[in-house]
């Protein structure tokens, strides 16, 4: 019954090792690009969500609810396969000439994560006393400028731990990009499995990669919350 032979050498050197390494690279690229974009988009949506202009606020609200309440996998399929019919031919041709699998994964991850980030930022802003905004406005700042210089910098600082959590989720969620052929680490682990039937070794490698990534990110949050949120070492 126990006739499975471990062969760790297969994934620690040679062709399959190279595959796994290239998978790690793609996972990191995908995650980093999406983290940056989703933060910017999330910030924008959060500001829109708190705008005084009703249609803008409603749009942001609808955006938040829709993208938070549909599975990421469905969104990935939609951007990759479903967007074709509703985009102009020229745009499609251009997208197809690029590495569209990667782009579609970035779009899906960015939009999905930005909805969560916007909510986190909004609760961060809510925790800033109202008087600050009033003071800024009475000092002659416009609404957007008060946001930009007074409210958001503080809110973002408070929001950093939950934000980093979202980035961690994003890195893990990037595994779903394998369904549209993006050769990230989960995809490569599965490739190694189907070429060598050494699933145990391949999945162990991928699991370790994610764990290292998570531990690194979690350590950052811990460090940050210790240093920044509690500079006096109170509590």
């Amino acid at each position: 019954m126990f006739n499975y032979k471990f062969d760790w050498a297969i994934i620690t050197s040679g062709q399959y090792f190279d595959w796994l390494v290239s998978g790690v690279k793609v996972t990191l690229e995908l995650s980093i690009v999406s983290v940056v974009l989703s933060f910017l988009l999330g910030l924008l949506i959060a500001v829109m969500r708190m705008s005084n202009v009703r249609p803008v606020r409603w749009f942001a609200h609808g955006y938040l609810e829709f993208f938070r309440n549909t599975p990421l996998l469905v969104q990935i399929f939609f951007w990759y396969f479903g967007s074709y019919k509703i985009l102009p031919t020229a745009v499609n041709d251009w997208l197809n000439s690029t590495n569209f699998e990667f782009t579609a994964a970035v779009i899906a991850l960015t939009i999905y994560t930005s909805a969560f980030i916007a909510e986190d930022i909004r609760s961060g802003v809510r925790s800033i006393p109202k008087e600050q905004m009033e003071a800024a406005r009475s000092a002659g700042f416009s609404y957007l400028r008060s946001m930009q210089y007074i409210i958001l910098p503080q809110a973002v600082r408070i929001t950093i731990p939950p934000l980093i959590n979202q980035f961690l989720n994003l890195a893990k969620n990037s595994s779903l990009a394998m369904t549209i052929g993006v050769a990230e680490i989960t995809y490569q682990a599965r490739q190694v499995e189907s070429y060598t039937f050494k699933g145990f070794e391949a999945f162990t490698a991928a699991t370790l990669v994610y764990l290292i990534l998570s531990v690194a990110i979690t350590a950052l949050v811990t460090l940050y919350s210790k240093k920044m949120l509690n500079p006096m070492g109170a509590r």
């Binding site: 019954m1 126990f2 006739n3 499975y4 471990f6 699933g199 145990f200």
Partner: peptide, 11 residues
């Protein structure tokens, strides 16, 4: 061992 057993075919 149990884990590995699951991967083998003739179980």
């Amino acid at each position: 061992l149990v884990f590995v057993g699951g991967l083998s075919a003739a179980a």
